[in-house]
Nucleic acid binder design. Structure first.
Length: 492
RNA sequence: CGGGGUGUAGCGUAGCCCGGUAUCGCGCCACAUUUGGGAUGUGGAGGUCGUAGGUUCGAAUCCUGCCACCCCGACCA
């Protein structure tokens, strides 16, 4: 491992790419746009999964698994849906390889052509709704609350580790309801779950809002989202929850008999977050020394580094360190005791900073003599000497909680500083090119104006915030009346 | 998918213009001395120069196709 990573303020995207690789989160695979998620990176994803999965279960959902392949014909059932995904689908056309006759290797066997091509799922609405048709007959079968953890493939033109990969991991919830109102409530509930997860676990503040019609999910009647602000002033869509209306139910003819015995189409929702959250997590908190992980998602919450001179001094230090390690483990804290004698302490310090371990304990001969331990925290990079006759596990628990809180507050402060109200288009453009961030401005609610702004400034309407206050104003571009401000930003 | 750039050991690179089988640093292995912020010395291992062709007596070097990565556009979780 070479020393250091590029500086954030010199080249943000280079900093990001190098950090992902140097911190052992992921690397590129031989196939364009696909990544290998390395054990350390995957551990973080597993923690995210565990927390989200519990939240889904707590709100009444259960997991299931639907197939990777979708018959091509399914994609054409919901018009807007095809429109949205057709351009980025991977297609399976054959099922067999054979040795080339000239010995040059394997080739696709032309005789093994599929009658109907299979699409590698870009999302699962179509397979799932075609299945739901058989699962739902009566209002007694509703609501149907299912989630799946899966991989999906979207043939994106331009990819970036975690932020946009050809294949990515995600969860997709797909629910069916008897009434419009209930489906909308579900959509909103899951948006709240995402927002709560982002803020509580990722320590990342988000804005809850609604997408404009042009940014809406293909096949949805309404798309809700959570939007986060990254350190370079760009926005990142961190999760979406869609109210599908009866679109998919109609496309796949999913009906139910209501209490009056009348047939009606069911109302649907779908909602998802992906490994893109890893990118959000990295960009929300990390610095020039490496990752800064929120304690609630850090695979290693505490690292203990023994510092000794010669074999003789190791035994007593080891004994004390083991004792502390066990005490922390007993409190449910994940601890790594790094007693490798192949690396010096300074090397280890730098390495755990790169990997974002929230708390570091260093224990040496001086500490043994004084009955103390050195405690360093990653978020502020400060150190203190703690007397071991105090409650070390309590101290660490407190510190972990404080770090979690502190990085959230820091990100919240950053967002506040980088959210600006703007009333003129000139000011808007100027701000985008200087500090960026979220810009709250009036808009005339037309797709034309939205497109014009996007074309001229590359900024998009991230969302119409749910908590946007009613405020009479005039569209900054056309001067037409507007009832509230919407949130603009350049985005990932 | 269009424009630009890059690809040499695990990582970062020199060599390429002006063809003669590869430089340096980090890392790796062994031993010794080290260990409170990325250790030092000595010795050693590791490369079909992204890939497939072509030109040539000879290709990392020149030409062509392909693959991947980075940047800019169009597309997007």
């Amino acid at each position: 491992m070479s020393k250091g990573i590029p500086k954030r303020n010199e080249d943000y995207s280079l900093w990001y790419n190098e950090l992902v690789k140097k911190a052992d989160l992921a690397e590129n695979s031989p196939v364009r746009g696909c990544m290998v998620i390395k054990p350390y990176g995957y551990s973080i994803w597993e923690k995210m999964q565990a927390a989200l999965d519990k939240m889904f279960k707590d709100t009444g959902h259960t997991n299931a698994y639907f197939p990777l392949f979708i018959p091509k014909s399914f994609l054409s059932k919901e018009a807007a849906h095809v429109e949205g995904f057709a351009k980025e689908c991977a297609v399976v056309t054959h099922y067999r390889l054979k040795n080339a006759e000239d010995g040059s290797g394997v080739i696709v066997d032309p005789e093994a052509k599929l009658e109907e091509e299979l699409i590698v799922r870009p999302t699962s609405e179509t397979v799932i709704w075609s299945t739901y048709k058989n699962w739902i007959q009566s209002y007694r079968d509703l609501p149907l609350l299912v989630n799946q953890w899966a991989n999906v493939v979207r043939w994106e033109m331009r990819t970036r580790l975690f932020l946009r990969t050809t294949e990515f991991l995600w969860q997709e919830g797909h629910t069916a309801h008897a009434t419009r109102q209930e489906a909308i409530q579900e959509t909103e509930q899951m948006l709240d779950v995402y927002a709560q997860f982002a803020e509580e676990f990722m320590a990342m503040p988000v804005v809850k809002g609604i997408k404009t019609p042009s940014e809406r999910f293909a096949g949805a009647e309404e798309t809700y989202c959570i939007e986060a602000l990254m350190q370079d002033g760009k926005a990142l869509q961190a999760g979406t929850s869609h109210f599908l209306g009866q679109n998919f139910a109609k496309a796949f003819d999913v009906t139910f008999a209501n209490k009056e015995g009348k047939l009606d189409h069911v109302w649907g929702t779908s909602w998802g977050v992906s490994t893109r959250l890893m990118g959000a997590l990295i960009m929300a908190h990390s610095d020039d020394e490496g990752l800064v992980l929120p304690p609630k998602l850090a695979p290693i919450q505490v690292v203990i580094v023994p510092i000794y001179k010669g074999e003789d001094s190791y035994a007593p230090i080891d004994e004390k360190a083991q004792e502390i390690r066990k005490a922390l483990l007993a409190k449910g804290i994940s601890v790594k005791y790094d007693n490798r004698d192949t690396h010096k302490p300074g090397f280890k310090f730098a390495e755990y900073e790169l990997k974002g371990v929230p708390v570091r304990l260093a224990l040496g001969l001086n500490d043994l003599a004084n009955n103390t331990i050195e405690i360093a925290r990653r978020d502020t990079k400060t150190k203190e000497v703690f007397a071991l006759d105090g409650n070390i596990t309590g101290k660490v628990e407190e510190l972990l909680a404080d770090i979690q809180h502190n990085i959230y507050q820091r990100a919240l402060g950053f967002r506040a500083e980088n959210t600006t109200k703007v009333d003129t288009y000139e000011e808007f453009k100027q701000l985008l090119d200087s500090k960026g961030g979220f810009i709250a401005a009036h808009w005339d609610e037309t797709a034309e104006t939205e497109a014009k702004i996007k074309e001229e400034t590359k900024a998009t309407i991230r969302c119409i915030p749910l908590d946007a206050e009613a405020e009479e104003g005039r569209c900054m571009v056309t001067g037409k009346p507007s009832k509230r401000r919407v949130l603009f930003a350049r985005a990932y």
